[in-house]
Design a protein around this nucleic acid. Sequence first.
DNA 1: GATGAATGAGTATTCATTCAT
DNA 2: CATGAATGAATACTCATTCAT
Lengths: 213, 213, 213, 213
Amino acid sequence: MSPRTQKQFREIREEKRTLIMDVALEHFANNGFHATTINHIAEHAAISKGLMYNYFNSKEGLLAAIIQRSVSEVYEYFDIDRDGYLTEGDFEFFIRKMAQILKEKQSLWRLFLQLMMQNAVREQFLNYFLGGKSLIKSGNGDVKGFFLSDIIKTITEYFIRKKDSKPKDYDPLLEMNMFILTMKGFAITYIYMDQDDENYFDKTVNNIIELYK
Amino acid sequence: MSPRTQKQFREIREEKRTLIMDVALEHFANNGFHATTINHIAEHAAISKGLMYNYFNSKEGLLAAIIQRSVSEVYEYFDIDRDGYLTEGDFEFFIRKMAQILKEKQSLWRLFLQLMMQNAVREQFLNYFLGGKSLIKSGNGDVKGFFLSDIIKTITEYFIRKKDSKPKDYDPLLEMNMFILTMKGFAITYIYMDQDDENYFDKTVNNIIELYK
Amino acid sequence: MSPRTQKQFREIREEKRTLIMDVALEHFANNGFHATTINHIAEHAAISKGLMYNYFNSKEGLLAAIIQRSVSEVYEYFDIDRDGYLTEGDFEFFIRKMAQILKEKQSLWRLFLQLMMQNAVREQFLNYFLGGKSLIKSGNGDVKGFFLSDIIKTITEYFIRKKDSKPKDYDPLLEMNMFILTMKGFAITYIYMDQDDENYFDKTVNNIIELYK
Amino acid sequence: MSPRTQKQFREIREEKRTLIMDVALEHFANNGFHATTINHIAEHAAISKGLMYNYFNSKEGLLAAIIQRSVSEVYEYFDIDRDGYLTEGDFEFFIRKMAQILKEKQSLWRLFLQLMMQNAVREQFLNYFLGGKSLIKSGNGDVKGFFLSDIIKTITEYFIRKKDSKPKDYDPLLEMNMFILTMKGFAITYIYMDQDDENYFDKTVNNIIELYK
DNA sequence: GATGAATGAGTATTCATTCAT
DNA sequence: CATGAATGAATACTCATTCAT
């Protein structure tokens, strides 16, 4: 048995890091950040408490790493590097993608919602994302991020363009408001839904597309 | 110097009890239950730590008292003792009331949302309200409560009745689903909105009524 | 209705003071001094917490008052002002009195035993009583007290006098040791005995008298 | 620097656990359970407060562990698995053993006496031991225990058997009563005796054997 | 005298974090 | 790399004592 190569070591490290983050995310999302102890996480990840601190500087650092990873994932997921022009097809794609990612990453969004409910966190978050600064500085350089302000601008333009084909009392900003609010309602409904209760999931998605496309 | 009368004592108690609950609600809602310390509450209520425990048995007891009071308030607010038949007028009234109470009791709903995000709490809560049992037992007898199951039944019937005047592909359950989801989105949007950002509040309410009446 | 006289006031005061001490003694004896709260005592004596401090300076002051009263009672009980010469009749009388007071003042002896088990208290106590100083200084002057050292001396002399009528291997100090030890065993047995279990109480007293007279 | 082995960890744990229990026993016995603070114990064991809770769940858990260990020790001490028939030799052996264990484990018996003085504890204790149930459930299964009821039965039979060789007014139950009472007196005398005052210890033991054998 | 609201020092307990091995 | 023993600051809670009325 030859000694493990540097690369193998790195892979093992990466795997364990991922494992810890997965376990932590699950517990944070379901029981709350404060209510989750490092001990709990370590136990469920089958490692020692001490080792945790080999991978993350602190409990908050672990949380930050989870968020950072999530942002990257979402970024990749949407392939957000687009030109800022939304066709009807793009719009539908965006909604379907959103629905899919909500389903696939329930825990992530539960955690996210939870964090957004704490004033201090929410303000910081909004500053970063609306202000156009990237959320988290990692050691390795900045995370690729997206800016809510950009996305909102793109969507706003989408709704404004549709004004021509609508009755004259059509208010694009109200429409956008309703759309975002509906997406929030959709999100909050389904991130806490059991897998059994999904009957209306697809129908609801189609309905939303119908309404706001 | 004559001693204080029983009535005076009762008034002092009632006032201070209310004060503590108000302060606590604000902090619980904005920073989270776990993140809020008894010390913090005491400081902001300008009382000593010890006095808290003259009025409430524990931090959880304080939370329970707040919820109990809130449930009573909401109950009074909606004058819920109705016959279970919803006219279009009732429906509109219900939505407007809902909007109003969200605005007036932001903190309460923030707290409520927060609690619902913890698995353990949510399950217990749903058991109580869906199961038809009242949430909290007070010393003096049960709190007046309402049962989600009843409300949902009433609203469902409302949407089913409207089927006749709608196209034949109209799905009342889907419609109800969308309505509830929209109300959730509305709620979560406005319980975290500054008072300055209210431009669209009324327009949104009207729009929702338009859509689902 | 004429206003109460000074004397009446004093009597009321005295009665209440006694009531508090009785209630406190019962609780101290059965649950322990530390485990008994001022609140508990006040409630059971049907007075306010504040009033307690009108009668006693502190919880420890209350305890001291109870002990002080008890010592006086015991003093009166035994009519201890005797010449220090114990006849056989006196000896029997002493044992019977002892048995009687144990039965009548169970709580007092339970408390007493409890206190003696704390090193700090025991040492202080022994210093006072063996050293010939009176235990407690009250505001009104010293309590009449008795000195264990005197009593032990008297009893010792009693056993030494009996040496003549006994076999030559008779050891008066051992005999006294056994006697005191037996009395302790008798005490500890009966201060924790239910009133139902008294079958052997009298027989035991007679037996002890038989053995050591 | 190689990491510590499992065995090393186990040894550290065992040693420290024992240390804490020893220190705690000493303080509980001399100052009382309530009057002894965790801080005190930690200081005297030269560990941090927090570490206590690495080894015991609570102050009461610590007490329970001490009692559990003590019961096991006493059990081993007496080699109690006997047939229930007491010869004169056994009887003498029992008394001498008892005397020895009182001397060697003074603190333990002080604590024990103290606990027995609290009504709640005493009742629970008597229920367990007289009722024939073992006192403490440990995680690993029950502690070996002995039942007071069995011991008392054995001793009773011993005294009844001796009736034949005694005068006809001999009352075996009274005799047993006196014996137990004497043993209690012996115990309470010597668990609070300085090591210097032991002059009469052995003589007393011999005397008791003489009297009741 | 009498009340009970109010105080604050003290206590048990938790938990993120460190560190010797 | 890995372990879990050890730390200590922070937290909920208690209770004797004070004091305005």
